[in-house]
């Protein structure tokens, strides 16, 4: 019973970025894994985004997978490695995603169709040949961006923000 009493009440905080239980050595394995997995997961998320129209996937799932990639990176690298690949504030990413989605909804009004109508766009791209896509893909892209932004924002607030509070309360020193 004592084991059951103890196992889930650790004496140290969990999931602190870049910190190991004793000392300041980074968890090498985790970090390497994160560095390898991060781009892989991002690519996988793009795949999910694009195939969403045909098999399970779509903007949501894709965004969440990409978001989890950032989570992994945060846990492995902490605030040190934290952040977007490009220097942009998460709320802006969220806002952009939302804006893209709403604009996708509004644009059809300009051509006289009902809001949120979609159409098939066929574009002839050099080298690739004709590519056709549903305009609703833009909505999916908006969703994808927004979800990635939301997850990164959560890392910023619930992750880094709480860690900062802990630092200031001197409950944890990185």
């Amino acid at each position: 019973m004592t084991i059951f009493d103890e196992w889930d009440a650790p004496r140290e905080p969990w999931m602190l970025p870049g910190a190991c239980r004793r000392g300041r050595t980074r968890r090498l394995l985790l970090e390497v894994a994160a560095r390898t997995l991060f781009p892989t997961m991002l690519v996988f998320s793009l795949y999910l985004l694009l195939v969403g129209h045909y098999s399970p996937g779509g903007g949501f799932a894709a965004g969440l997978v990409a978001g989890l990639a950032f989570v992994l990176r945060h846990i492995a690298g902490g605030s040190v490695g934290f952040g977007m690949p490009v220097p942009v504030r998460p709320p802006v990413v969220i806002g952009s995603g939302l804006a893209i989605a709403v604009l996708t909804a509004l644009v059809p009004l300009l051509v006289g169709s009902p809001a949120l109508s979609s159409a098939k766009l066929a574009v002839d791209i050099p080298l690739l040949g004709p590519v056709s896509a549903q305009t609703s893909l833009f909505l999916d892209i908006g969703v994808y961006l927004l979800i990635v932004g939301v997850v990164v924002d959560l890392l910023r607030s619930l992750g880094a923000g709480i860690e900062r509070d802990m630092r200031e309360a001197e409950e944890w020193l990185p």
Partner: peptide, 20 residues
């Protein structure tokens, strides 16, 4: 809706407003 995945079609086309 240009999608074989009916769920995706619902989410981004038939009921896209819910998604927004």
């Amino acid at each position: 809706a240009g999608a074989d995945n009916v769920i995706a079609a619902i989410l981004v086309d038939f009921r896209a407003l819910d998604t927004v």
